[in-house]
Design a protein around this nucleic acid. Structure first.
Lengths: 205, 205
DNA sequence: TGAATTATTGACCAAACGGTCAGGATCAAG
DNA sequence: CTTGATCCTGACCGTTTGGTCAATAATTCA
């Protein structure tokens, strides 16, 4: 149960697939799908192009595998909202967790940003399926809190959009943020402080 | 003073350059720079590929011209904030204007989103120059209002980031928004309502 | 009208790219 | 050590793409 993924996977397969996934994350997140080349991925992974294609059937295959492998990790923070916890603490915790993701995993953020911008050709099923279910479950929790008067009333779904957009903004548009703020500042720390203050005020009943 | 752009421009030049700009906006905003081909742009404009390259030196030239031509229009709403107006009305007006931009000009929003995601290879000067100045001027106005106690105190720059990210989210990630909301709803109207309520609460001193 | 300028295009080119393949290197197991 | 499976690569292929160019068509203006 520790590693029940592929039936059999040699150490070399394990290592090289990981290298390719990391290289692909570098290249796709920097250039988008169309802007990325298998050669770049191979170079970033330290492998030859044919060797990359020995492990993955096609560029499309690499991209799709990468997205699906990262999706769970990307959506994890939302699923960790505890319906039994303190509403304000849970929401501020979620915001902080998303902000940490933007700071520590900007490549993942940009990867998904490109995919959604593109029209989500590889995620359409997930968008209308799994993602929507996860959001719906969270919406139920939020609405419960609002009905109980422990959280200010707002549209829960648009509240979630606001958290997504603002936190991911610091990763996806980091260049713009840094250009506007100027050097010698910490966009993520400042952003975290701003968001905490903002949502505390917004969500206080 | 009505049209002091190019020294001389025939009607054909005027028309075809406009066609190309529109086609380029279609293609670049849907696929990003690397994902766009001159052939697609030509087809979208109703011209042949060599004819497109008769008016523009290269794909890069098309892209750069398009960005610079649209930049002013894109930044206009922020410059229309009136320092002499009512603070709350001015801010809510700015949010509403940005929201209208997302609804009516999603192609422009996505075009800039791609460019910033990419690392803004064509906008670096503008980001650190003109954009920063515009933001700085607005920041001065906001700080004035906050000092006067007519607007709640917050970091003005991060406040601006929040408006940018949330309003543009409805254009750039429209597919995701629609997938989560489900059909039969108006994301932009709902978003506008949410944002107005949110910023009214946030900015009330 | 006719010459000069502007506009348009089919054919073409070199580079980049996704992907293939035969054959050789490496490794694990008996 | 041997053998079979796994791993790796140089060379190659067809297609796509950005861009060129010579030749032709359309337009402008004296």
């Amino acid at each position: 149960m520790t590693d029940a993924k592929m039936p059999r996977m040699t150490r070399i397969q394990q290592k090289n697939r990981d290298l390719i996934m990391d290289g692909a994350l570098n290249v796709f997140s920097a250039n988008g799908f169309r802007g990325a080349t298998i050669d770049q991925i191979a170079r970033s992974a330290g492998l030859s192009k044919p060797n990359v294609l020995y492990y993955f059937a096609s560029k499309d295959d690499i991209h799709k595998t990468l997205l699906t492998e990262l999706l769970d990790m990307w959506l994890a923070p939302m699923q960790q909202i505890d319906p039994a916890g303190d509403p304000m603490a849970e929401m501020l915790g979620y915001v902080a967790a998303k902000m940490r993701m933007s700071r520590d995993y900007p490549r993942e953020s940009r990867l998904f940003a490109y995919e959604i911008l593109q029209g989500a050709p590889h995620l359409t099923q997930i968008l209308g399926g799994g993602l929507r279910d996860i959001v719906d479950r969270t919406v139920v929790v939020l609405q419960g809190w609002m009905v109980e008067g422990r959280l200010a009333r707002t549209d829960p779904r648009h509240l979630i959009f606001s958290i997504w957009s603002m936190t991911q903004h610091y990763a996806d548009f980091e260049i713009q943020v840094r250009a506007v703020l100027g050097s010698g500042r910490d966009p993520f720390a400042e952003g975290q402080e701003f968001l905490e203050q903002m949502y505390r005020k917004l969500l206080t009943p």
